[in-house]
Structures are given as structure tokens and as C-alpha cells.
Design a protein around this nucleic acid. Structure first.
Length: 1107
RNA sequence: GCGGGAGUAGCUCAGCUGGUUAGAGCGCACGCCUGAUAAGCGUGAGGUCGGCAGUUCAAGUCUGCCCUUCCGCACCA
């Protein structure tokens, strides 16, 4: 009857092979998306805007595993928000400027580290190659992006090298300029001296550039000028009975490892928190840190050790003037550089301009004398200090590392040390000259020591806006939260000015035109403005070097030329909220272009990149928007950890441990790789990637989902249930309503997780549900699916089957929707196959569907709790059977159960059929929670009693241990208060304040865990033994069917050649055996010519397919 | 050196505002189950929750110091 229908018509649903071919399924979905323009349709649909920014990758590198991570997350939330009815513009973007591009071209040309600005032609060619090189791997990127299922509009991306983009960036710089936030100032950069080339961090290399070398370690006397002695010092000395006048020749002992910088000295720095001493030394009275006294004594072991005369606080030494060893230098140079005092450096007015003691936290007494020599043009921290004190800059070398002062003039800086040391010795200024073995950086290409050197640079004055940056950061939701006040927050607090210029070639040219005498700078805010200045139409001019450098103009009788530097690429990427729409504003703030799109897409609701962007993109976005828009550029940000190999090592080409993403997609499917990314660890934590773990992720969710889907289709195609006519939920069995309640919970939990940008929490809820679905619901209800409820009363069986199909169908379709943002391929496979049976109007793709909303009315919390008790008891029961070697197929007469609470135990009674079937027992009996077979132990309910009894808890424990457990158990059962006592102290307790645990009854196969208890009556009757054997037989026949490759709906003729008990069991349970195994008829004795046969305990079975 | 993260079973990781006997998955051994599932279930071995102090009736959880490791920033007189 049913069989005939089934074979006569095409299957309702896709026939799902047992072995999933995810690669093929995903290819099919990709094809469908493309054909039906599914992504495009989400872009065309209306809805409130959820703003997402694509952090631009550099297209000239290969897409790698960390891009899978980032892009999985970048895809997840926009897909989710789209299903919630938002419109999410997903404009792609490419970072195209900067050093990586330059280096790749240099490598190709074999011109590493060369100066490409040598000639106009060379630069033109170089930049042309850079522009091309940007797109060398674009095909790989396009394929990779599609294959991962990352929906982003690559047809209309923003590209940072386009004229429009550059012009917008100029416009932003101009707006900063107009606010007085752009300035030229010195910056200490690492220089490869002989070739006078500024090195980037990449070129400086990681560890290789630091080498162990012997350098001078010199202690120099800087005699103080008595008339400048600070009052605090005078007072302190007087207080300690030391007469300043008696300290003839009193000198600071200053330490340095770079004697060649001494001519450039402008300050001596002490730590304000340290204690300094005035001490008698072999070279007269000296000032050093107290903690350095012994070290200095040891330097001259043959002479008397230092004798401390007085102690001084470091902070009191400030502004004490001294005589530096090369006072003439300043005169000779006429003092290069202006005062760089900040407006807040008030003290600078009355104090000497240089050669005095300054206070600096970075000074320690761990090495040297505790007094640091400061030559600010040769150190970043020193330059910072110099700014604070407003001292002039004194250059003792040129930018090729040649000395420009003293008798060492013309010498390479490192070679000047010797002469200077000798000179100072001769002049009696050298307290001690030794050597130190330490690490110093070298340029690996030239072999020269690095020269840290102050060069003019362009800055955005972010440091003075630090407070604002911190304030605006408060409005950002960081995932993980610690980044907000940790890595990012700390970085903002200690913010230094943003050096935006680079002495490079391929980048956004700085739009600064400088008068030839350096007296004036014009910041150009648009091409039109530049055209006006230049007096010719520059529309269409390539805004890159060298073309833009050709543009000069005259103003006030002076010729203006563009400064040579290009812009830091981070400024490029941080400009994307504006430049991706070619936002342009007039100097008066009037929007000229891009305003509408910009308004709609600012700020971002969500961005996501890896943690290395805290000082990169996350910062540049934040800095620019805080300075110009007075608000953050993004509201939520996920900051991902890095991916390392399975041993925790960084993946690198040289180590050969790089995992390519594409083979992973092919082997496991993009869905499984994505699922791994979402669930493997907290997003901010580092991930140890291994293929094995992708396989685990696959088994954890993807396979389970797929298998349940396959199960549904297998039987639905046989039974052809009418899913449009499902029984009302209230009419369905408890287990169906349980599943649907769990489904509601899952909707709620997945939604909550995603709303909090907690992908892992959401994924876990989904994983838990599919596990319940597969390993409890489907397994428990298998019979309701096969043979359409043919057993039992016909109509009742059919209704029951319909309920099961409807329930499972709904669960699968809903899981598909919930999973859609995570595993977009499989979700669409399942959805497209199943959803439209019940709703012909349903959208074609799951990604066009509305998000499933939690419906409290369908959530029966009590039922979930009760079923949970059943699950626990069944698990426990199975454990007991295992422990006592009670085969599951052997029916047992009775199980005694009790759950941890009275309510749960009552629920076990209501759901006893589930338990009986699952544990294969004839009867389920609720164990009276306080039955006499059971003994008890008492535990205090600590969260309850801890609050009220506090320190008395140990005594209470003792009281419970000594109490009459049976009496307490009775009281608790009856809800009565009771009293226990110890050491004369009475505790009057409520039933809630104590936990009563049952002990496994003696003589029964039993186990107890967490208050749940299960005990089996193991008395076997002859009938039970035979039934067990019959079930073994069924199982054996099924196994034979399966091994013979029979279809699940094939009817068979069955012959059994058995003896002994097995034969008797077969005869007794003949109906069960034939109905369970779809046997038309059953004969006994050996049979010939059957298709399948196999040995079983007690004989042999023969099978023949019929029909 | 400074800042941040991490340290829980052989591996990958959970463990909420302190609370009862610290868990899951994988792997291993043994067993069970299986007519959807290359799945599933159970038992066992395997833990000084990185270490030491402290706070508390009670610490994997809070505080301090230290160790290891990863990341970032420095490398400095």
C-alpha cells in the first residue's frame, strides 16, 4: 500500500547519502547564490542600516588562515543582522599603499633598500610596478572569499590608491590642519647612516639586527655651577651639616655608552624618586645615585671607596646647572633648532635653557651612575624630555653619521669615541672609562651600527587629545572586554603624537606645499584647490609621485613645492569611513560630495580584525574620527587572537608550518572550518590550529546536523508525511513538546549570544540543541518514523507519526535558520530542501529569511526541566547496567528511581514510559525518597547557610554529621524545620538549608550521583531471558540486512536455523521478530539459495529480499 | 625592561556574581549500543586548577609576589 505510493512518485526530498560530500554541496550552493543573486538581493533590500566596515587587506599577499578567522566573523554578524531585517552595506576594500608593496617590488627588481627617488624616471617606473603588484593575487582573493562564503561586494570596493580616495584623505588632512592639529617637528628615527636611509621596523628586522658588541661605558664628570644650586639642595645640605662651599669641584657623574653624543648633551637626567648622594671620591666630590655608590667605588678598586657626605632627593636636583664638556659646541653651531617647549613647560621661562638637571622616570640606578646623559637628538625618550623642558636641539653629527663638531669633526660617529674619551681624560673630566658588553642594533645590509637621529617629520597632534581619545573609547564595546582598558586604553592614555610622514615612494603624497625658504606651508584640501593654486586644471592628474611633485605654484613671490614625504598607510585605512564614499568638504565645512552615503554609514556598528590592529586600524579609525567627528568610528569591535600552529608556534614560511586554507575547505568544507573558528576558543584568545580540531568541529555540529537531516529525508521519502496538516503542538506527545521547548530556548540563547557579539556562546547553544535532537529525540523516536506508525491502532499511530515528522521538520528548518550565519552552506541546503514543503511562499534562500524569534508561549520550562531529570536518570541507569554487566537488550523486571528533588522525582513518574523503554525494564518504580532501603548522608546547603551562619559553618557541618540522618531526612521530606546540635550549640534549620543524599541500596545494581539514584531489580525469569534472546535475534537479523545492503524498506523472507533457548525464544517472539525485521514470513530450519546469511548465537539466519 | 593575554586531564578547551564531590570533547584501555549517523553511550586510567603567601566559615574563582608562555611596545643613558 504505502510502498506502492513510495515507489510510484519521485522522492519528496533530496536523497542524502550517508557520506556527506560537503565540497560538492557547497559548490552547488555557491552556484545557486550566484545564479539567483542571493547576496545582491540582500544588498538591494530595504531596512534600517546596520553599518559594517571592511578592514582592507593588502591584495598583494596570499590569503591565509588568519583571514579565514577574521572573515568568518566579519561574515557572521552581517548575515545575522540581515536576517533580523537590517540592511548591511558590505562594501569591500583594498589597502594598496605602503611598505609591503614596495618591498615586494624591490625584491622583484633586486633593488632592496635602494633610494628610488634618485631620478624622476626611476620613481615613475617604481610606482607603476607598485600599482600593478597590488593586484597580483587578486584572483586568489576573489576565489578564497567566495569559497569561504564571505559575502562582501568586491565589485565596487574602495581602493586606497585611487584619486578619489587620495583626495578624500587630503581633505581630512586639511580639516586637521585647519584645526591646528598638523605640525612639523623632529622625530627620532633609526637611520642606516652611510646611506642615510630611514629604516622601517620591518627593515630593522626582528632579532637579527641586535648584536652583542663591546661598547664604551664611560662615567664623565659634569661640574655643577654653585650659583645655580637649587634651594632645596642648599637646605638639605645645610640640614645635614655639609657646607656647599667646601665641596670644591662638585660634579655630577654622568654615565653613557655613546661618548660621541656627549658634545650634543643638553641635560643630565635623574629619577625624581631615587635618592642621590654627595660623596667624596678619588676625583673630588661627586653626585651619584645612592644605589650606584658601590658600583662607582668598584670602578677604582685600588683607591678609597666613596664616602657619602649627604643624601638628596632626586626631585630636588631639578634645574641644577652644570658645565658640560663641550660648551663651545653650542656657540659654534649657533644652536640649531628652535625651542621645542610645550606650552605647559612653564618652568622653562626662568630656568637656564640647557645644561641642567632634568627629571625623568625612565632613569634607573641599575646601570651606570644613576645620572643619565641626555643628547635628545639621538634618542626618542630623550627628545620627549627635551620637549618637556624646552631645551634646544644640538646636532653633533650630520644625517650620514659624520661628526660635525669638536676636533673629531668628519669622523664616523662610532670612530669618534676614542678621541673624545682621550680628550676628556686629558681634561680631567673622565671619572672612569671602561667597556660594556651589550646588544646594539645594526643594519644587516650595510653592516653599519644604527644611528638614532632626529629628523623633521609631520605629526598629527594626537597626544594633546589623549583625554578625548580615552573618553570616546568609553563608548566602544570591545570583545574581549579587557582590550578596552588594557591594550587599547593604555595605548591611548600614553598616546604620543602620530607621526604621519614616511620617506617613501608608493603612498598617498602628503598634500603639503612648502615655500622654498621654508617660511610657509600650504595644506591642499582638494584637487580643485590645487588647480587654482597652480593656475591649471589638474583634473585627471595621477595624484601619486612623481606626477604630483611636478605641481608647483607661486605665492607672495615664493615658489612652493610639495614636501617629499608620503603618508603613513594607517592614515589611509583609518580614512575609509570617509574616503570610501569620496567624502569632500569645503574649508567652511560644506559637504561637496559623498555626504549622503557617509551620513548613512557612520559610525560603524561593527568591525572586526585581529589584535595587531589595536595600534593599526583600530587606532587610526578612532584617532581620525575623534579628532574630526568628536565621536568613535565604531560601536562594537571584535578583536581576534592570532592563529598559531598546533605546537603554539607562529606560522611562518621559513618554519614550513603554514596551513593553507583552501585544502581545508576542500577536505572539510568551509562550513566546518568556519565552525572551528567560531568555537575553538574565545575569539580574543590565541588559537592553536590543527586539522584534527577542524575534524572535531565538524563532528561536533556539522555532521550531526547533516545526519539528522539525512534521517528525516530517508523516512520522509518513504512515508511521505503530510507536513502541511500537522497535529497541533498541544496535541503532540510530551517528547515533541519537550523538543520544541528546547528549540525555543535555543532560539533565545543563540540570539542572546549574537546580540552580545558572543559567537561562541551562540554556537554552543546550537551545538547542544543538535546533540539533544540527534542523540535523544531522534534516537528515542525512531520507531515513530519508520513504517508510519503501522503498529498499534491505525489512526492513532498515524497521528503520532505525523506529530513526529512535523516536530522534526520544524526543528530542522529552524536549526537551518539559526545556523545560517555560521554555516551558510549546509544551512541553505537543508532549508531549501525542507522549508518550502510547508510554506510555498517561503524565500528561496535561508539567507533571505527572517530570524526565528523566541516565543515564550511555546516554551514549557517545566517540561524541559523534567526531561532533564529523565535524561540524567537514563544516563545513570545505563552506567549501572554497564557496571554490572547487564546487557541493554536483556529486559529487567524493574528499576527503582529517585531524582534529586521531589518535583523531579514526580516528573520521573509521569515520564516513566520513556525511562522504561530506554532502560529496557518492565516497570519503573519511584523510590520513596526516604524509603528504608536507602541510607543517607547530609550536607549543608552552603550558599544558603553560609550567608546566615558564616563562621559557624564548620560547627554546623559537625552537627549534621552527628545528627540522626533518618530523622532529618523525614523532616526534610515533610517540609518541617528541625534542629541539630553540636558542642551544646543548637541549629534550627529549614528544609532548604540541608541536602540529603541517598546512598546506593545494598544488594541492588544501583548508582547514585548528585542526588539522583537508580537501582535495578535484576531478578531474571525464564520469560525475560527468552525476550532478551529474541531481541538479540532481532538485532542480528537487522545487522544481516544491513550488511547485505538491503534497503531499510525492503521486505524479506526470513529463515532461522536455531537450537536450544534461542529457538524457543524465536518461537515465543515470532511476531516481534517478523514485524521488527520487515519479514513477510518466517520459516525454521536450514535454507538454501538465500541472498544473505550469517551466524548468530545459537544458530544461523537466512534472508531473502522480496517484492 | 614595560604593558596585555594565557597557564585547569596526554591534547583542545568549559567552569556565571567565591559555595557542596572541578567538567566536556578528542586520544588511550575495556565494555555497551546501533535499520539515520565514519555516529552514540558507559567505565577506567589520567588533575598539588603554574608556584608561594594572604583575605574568607569557604578560593580554580578575590589580593599580593614569583615562574612559564604568547602578543604588543621599548631596547635606553
Amino acid at each position: 500500500m504505502r510502498d506502492d505510493q513510495a515507489t510510484a512518485t519521485a522522492p519528496l526530498f533530496r536523497e542524502v547519502p550517508t557520506q556527506p560530500d560537503y565540497r560538492a554541496l557547497e559548490a552547488e550552493i555557491l552556484d545557486f547564490w550566484k545564479r539567483e543573486r542571493v547576496f545582491e538581493r540582500t544588498q538591494e533590500r530595504d531596512g534600517p542600516e546596520f553599518v559594517f566596515y571592511e578592514g582592507p587587506p593588502t591584495a598583494n599577499g596570499q590569503p591565509a588562515l588568519h583571514h579565514v578567522l577574521a572573515r568568518s566573523f566579519k561574515d557572521l554578524f552581517p548575515r545575522y543582522k540581515t536576517m533580523r531585517g537590517y540592511h548591511v552595506t558590505r562594501k569591500g576594500g583594498w589597502d594598496t599603499h605602503g611598505l609591503p608593496v614596495e618591498i615586494s617590488v624591490e625584491k622583484k627588481l633586486g633593488l632592496l633598500g635602494r633610494n628610488h627617488g634618485a631620478s624622476r624616471e626611476e620613481l615613475e617606473e617604481f610606482n607603476r610596478l607598485c600599482r600593478e603588484s597590488v593586484w597580483t593575487t587578486i584572483q586568489d582573493w576573489n576565489y578564497f572569499t567566495e569559497r569561504l562564503g564571505y559575502w562582501v561586494d568586491l565589485g565596487d570596493p574602495y581602493v586606497t590608491y585611487t584619486n578619489d580616495y587620495i583626495e578624500s584623505v587630503w581633505n581630512l588632512l586639511r580639516r586637521l590642519w585647519d584645526r591646528g592639529l598638523v605640525e612639523r617637528d623632529y622625530k627620532v628615527v633609526p637611520l642606516s647612516p652611510r646611506i642615510s636611509t630611514t629604516l622601517s621596523k620591518a627593515e630593522l628586522g626582528e632579532e637579527d639586527s641586535y648584536q652583542w658588541v663591546d661598547d664604551p661605558s664611560v662615567y664623565v664628570r659634569f661640574p655643577v655651577k654653585p650659583e645655580t644650586t637649587p634651594d632645596a639642595v642648599r637646605a638639605a645640605l645645610t640640614g645635614q651639616g655639609v657646607d656647599l662651599a667646601s665641596l670644591d669641584g662638585l660634579a655630577l657623574v654622568v654615565w653613557t655608552t655613546t661618548p660621541w653624543t656627549l658634545p650634543s648633551n643638553t641635560m643630565a637626567a635623574v629619577n625624581p624618586e631615587l635618592t642621590y648622594v654627595v660623596a667624596r671620591s678619588p676625583m673630588g666630590p661627586v653626585i651619584v645615585a645612592e644605589d650606584a655608590v658601590e658600583r662607582l667605588s668598584a670602578l677604582r678598586p685600588k683607591e678609597a671607596p666613596l664616602e657619602v657626605l649627604a643624601r638628596l632627593r632626586g626631585r630636588d636636583l631639578e634645574f641644577w646647572g652644570y658645565q658640560q664638556p663641550y660648551p663651545d659646541v653650542v656657540k659654534d653651531l649657533g644652536v640649531e633648532g628652535r625651542s621645542t617647549a610645550h606650552s605647559d613647560g612653564e618652568d622653562a621661562g626662568s630656568a637656564p635653557r640647557m645644561h641642567f638637571v632634568a627629571l625623568a622616570d625612565f632613569v634607573t640606578a641599575d646601570d651606570g651612575s644613576g645620572v643619565a646623559h641626555e643628547a635628545p637628538v639621538y634618542g626618542a625618550e630623550d627628545l620627549e624630555l627635551s620637549r618637556r623642558y624646552g631645551t634646544p636641539l644640538v646636532f653633533g653629527t650630520d644625517d650620514h653619521g659624520r661628526m660635525t663638531v669638536t676636533h673629531e669633526k668628519g669622523q664616523f660617529f662610532k670612530d669618534a669615541d676614542k678621541g673624545l674619551i682621550r680628550d676628556m681624560k686629558d681634561r680631567g673630566l673622565m671619572y672612569h672609562a671602561g667597556t660594556i658588553h651589550h646588544r646594539y642594533p645594526f643594519h644587516d645590509r650595510t653592516g653599519d651600527p644604527i644611528l638614532y637621529f632626529a629628523k623633521p617629520s609631520w605629526y598629527v597632534r594626537t597626544a594633546r587629545m589623549s583625554g578625548r581619545l580615552v573618553e570616546e573609547n568609553e563608548k566602544i564595546n570591545w570583545v574581549p572586554a579587557n582590550i578596552k582598558h588594557g591594550r587599547f586604553g593604555k595605548w591611548l592614555e600614553g598616546n604620543v603624537d602620530w607621526a604621519i610622514s614616511r620617506e617613501r615612494y608608493w603612498g598617498t603624497p602628503l598634500p603639503f606645499w612648502m615655500a622654498e625658504d621654508g617660511s610657509d606651508v600650504v595644506c591642499v584640501g582638494s584637487v580643485r584647490e590645487l588647480s587654482e593654486l597652480a593656475g591649471r586644471d589638474l583634473e585627471g592628474l595621477d595624484l601619486h609621485r612623481p606626477y604630483v611633485d611636478d605641481v608647483t605654484f607661486e605665492r607672495g613671490g615664493k615658489v612652493y613645492r610639495r614636501v617629499p614625504e608620503v603618508l603613513d598607510v594607517w592614515f589611509d585605512s583609518g580614512s575609509m569611513p570617509y574616503a570610501q564614499w569620496h567624502l569632500m568638504q569645503d574649508p567652511d565645512g560644506e559637504v561637496v560630495s559623498g555626504g549622503e552615503q557617509f551620513q548613512k554609514h557612520f559610525p560603524a556598528d561593527f568591525i572586526c580584525e585581529a589584535i595587531d590592529q589595536t595600534r593599526g586600524w583600530f587606532y587610526s579609525l578612532h584617532a581620525i574620527s575623534t579628532l574630526l567627528m568628536d565621536q568613535p568610528a565604531y560601536r562594537n569591535v571584535i578583536c581576534l587572537g592570532h592563529i598559531v600552529d598546533e605546537h603554539g608556534k607562529k606560522m611562518s614560511k621559513s618554519k614550513g608550518n603554514v596551513v593553507q586554507p583552501l585544502p581545508m575547505f576542500d577536505r572539510y568544507g568551509a562550513d566546518s572550518v568556519r565552525w572551528y573558528m567560531f568555537t575553538a576558543s574565545e575569539p580574543g584568545d590565541q588559537k592553536r590550529f590543527s586539522e584534527r580540531l577542524v575534524g572535531e568541529a565538524q563532528r561536533g555540529f556539522v555532521n550531526t546536523f547533516y545526519n539528522v537531516y539525512g534521517f528525516f529525508n530517508l523516512y520522509a521519502n518513504i512515508d511521505r508525511p503530510d507536513l502541511t496538516n500537522a497535529p497541533a503542538v498541544s496535541e503532540r506527545p510530551e517528547i515533541d513538546r519537550w523538543l520544541l521547548s528546547r528549540l525555543e530556548e535555543t532560539k533565545r540563547d543563540v540570539t542572546d549570544g549574537l546580540e552580545r557579539y558572543d559567537a561562541r556562546r551562540a554556537a554552543r547553544a546550537l551545538e547542544r540543541f543538535t546533540d539533544d535532537l540527534s542523540n535523544w529525540y531522534v534516537r528515542r523516536n525512531r520507531r515513530r518514523f519508520w513504517r508510519g506508525g503501522a503498529s498499534g491502532a491505525e489512526s492513532a499511530g498515524r497521528a503520532d507519526s505525523a506529530a513526529a515528522y512535523a516536530t522534526l521538520h520544524e526543528a530542522l528548518v529552524t536549526v537551518a535558520k539559526l545556523a545560517a550565519p555560521f554555516t551558510p552552506f549546509l544551512a541553505d541546503v537543508v532549508y531549501r530542501d525542507l522549508a518550502r514543503v510547508t510554506d510555498p511562499q517561503a524565500p528561496e534562500s535561508v539567507h533571505l529569511c527572517a530570524w526565528p524569534e523566541f516565543d515564550p508561549a511555546r516554551h514549557d520550562e517545566r517540561l524541559v526541566r523534567e526531561m532533564d531529570a529523565v535524561l540524567r536518570v537514563v544516563d545513570l541507569g545505563r552506567a549501572v547496567r554497564g557496571q554490572h554487566n547487564l546487557r541493554a537488550r536483556q529486559p529487567l523486571p524493574k528499576v527503582l528511581v529517585r531524582a534529586r528533588t521531589a518535583d523531579d522525582t514526580a516528573a520521573l513518574g509521569r515520564l516513566r514510559d520513556q525511562i522504561a523503554e530506554e532502560l529496557n525494564v518492565k516497570d519503573v518504580e519511584l523510590l520513596d525518597p526516604y524509603a528504608s532501603v536507602v541510607s543517607y548522608t547530609l550536607r549543608p546547603n552552603l550558599p544558603v547557610v553560609g550567608r546566615t551562619y558564616g563562621k559557624q559553618v564548620p560547627l554546623l557541618k559537625q552537627a549534621l554529621a552527628e545528627a540522626d540522618t533518618a530523622a532529618v531526612a523525614r523532616a526534610v521530606r515533610d517540609g518541617q524545620n528541625f534542629t541539630v546540635s553540636a558542642e551544646g550549640h543548637d541549629f534550627h534549620l529549614t528544609p532548604e538549608s540541608v541536602l540529603v543524599d541517598a546512598r546506593s541500596p545494598q544488594g541492588l545494581a544501583a548508582a547514585e550521583e548528585g542526588g539522583d539514584l537508580v537501582a535495578f531489580d535484576t531478578t531474571l525469569t525464564r520469560d525475560l531471558v527468552l525476550e532478551g534472546l529474541a531481541r538479540d535475534l532481532v538485532r542480528a537479523v537487522q545487522d544481516t540486512r544491513k550488511k547485505a545492503g538491503f534497503d531499510v524498506s525492503d521486505r524479506v523472507r526470513l529463515a532461522l536455523d536455531l537450537h536450544g533457548d534461542t529457538l524457543e525464544a524465536a518461537r515465543a517472539w515470532q511476531d516481534l521478530i517478523t514485524s521488527e525485521t520487515l519479514a513477510h514470513d518466517l520459516s525454521y530450519g536450514p535454507a538454501d539459495g538465500y541472498e544473505a546469511e550469517s551466524d548468530v548465537e545459537g544458530g544461523r539466519v537466512y534472508l531473502h529480499r522480496v517484492g
